[in-house]
Design a protein around this nucleic acid. Structure first.
Lengths: 154, 154
DNA sequence: ATAAATTTGACCATTATTGACCATTGCGAG
DNA sequence: CTCGCAATGGTCAATAATGGTCAAATTTAT
């Protein structure tokens, strides 16, 4: 189907492949003009196809010389453990589940001891001062972005 | 990179590196001429990139023989880290302030690059899915516990 | 028919650039 | 000495250049 969002997605993934590294930088307005769509559609594509669940990190800056940078998290390079663990997190996670995952990450030496301590501090229920439906969701989100940060090898 | 401010920032940081000490002295008009911008843009760069939050002090003098001196202030490496951290982070902190602190910690090699990326991921407003009065407070809290986790090692 | 995904646009936020006008300092001419 | 000017740097507000959010409208899939 001639779905613009999909075209944009493919275009960006192509750029990622071509660029030697694992990231591309682009301009929102320029891209939008190129695809003859409104700029906010770029945001739509980014949030639906290039989010952390899909293994991407998006950074950006506004103003003069602004940009959008899309970074691919190279999960494959770390082999099975990293991928499995990343998927394990899910939409919600409680503290002890999170701690198990962190323990495993440390055992597999995918993160250092210090990093494990940072992870534990963040997923601690006392750090996440929220009531329960939301706390587990925030914890899952934070765990995922922390994993993404670590697996990101820049 | 169509961003003069960034070029000027890099230029000054280069000068700082090259000069043995931790300070450089320059002339506003001269610099502005060199980069073909208005003199006040130098002030813009100074106030956004070389302020105390970023660990710099700027001194200057007007009139004949005027100058601008930029001095880099290193973080205290001794004393109780917890106290210093608490002072730095406070009860609430926005994303850019947090990022500045993280950048400094990495520059001072108090945390590794990977750790800095974890920190950044956690303090990102998109990771902390909360509305604004509480988001800054949660961010401050998380930053504090992460720093505590790292400095606890004694 | 309903739900989900996509497309649009109005309005918002952040960062950079520019220029008019202001302040301070040093140095000569009287 | 003192006054005045040349040589510096400072402030602030307007404008430009980007990107972000949110929800309504529309299209597509179930």
């Amino acid at each position: 189907m001639a779905n613009i969002s999909e075209l944009i997605e493919r275009y960006i993934k192509n750029l990622l492949q071509e660029s030697q590294g694992d990231s591309v930088e682009l301009q929102r307005n320029e891209l939008a003009a190129q695809f003859k769509c409104v700029p906010s559609q770029i945001n739509y594509v980014l949030s639906t196809r290039f989010n952390t669940e899909n293994g991407f990190i998006v950074e950006s800056r506004r103003g003069g010389g602004g940009f959008i940078r899309i970074v691919k998290i190279p999960l494959e390079q770390h082999g099975d453990p990293a991928v499995q663990i990343y998927r394990l997190v899910g939409e919600e996670i409680n503290q002890s589940q999170a701690e198990n995952i962190i323990k495993r990450l440390a055992e597999e030496e995918l993160i250092t001891l210090r990093e494990a301590q940072i992870f534990r501090a963040v997923v601690d229920r006392n750090s996440l001062r929220l009531e329960l439906p939301w706390r587990d969701s925030l914890r899952a989100n934070l765990l995922r972005v922390m994993l993404a940060a670590v697996f990101r090898e820049s």
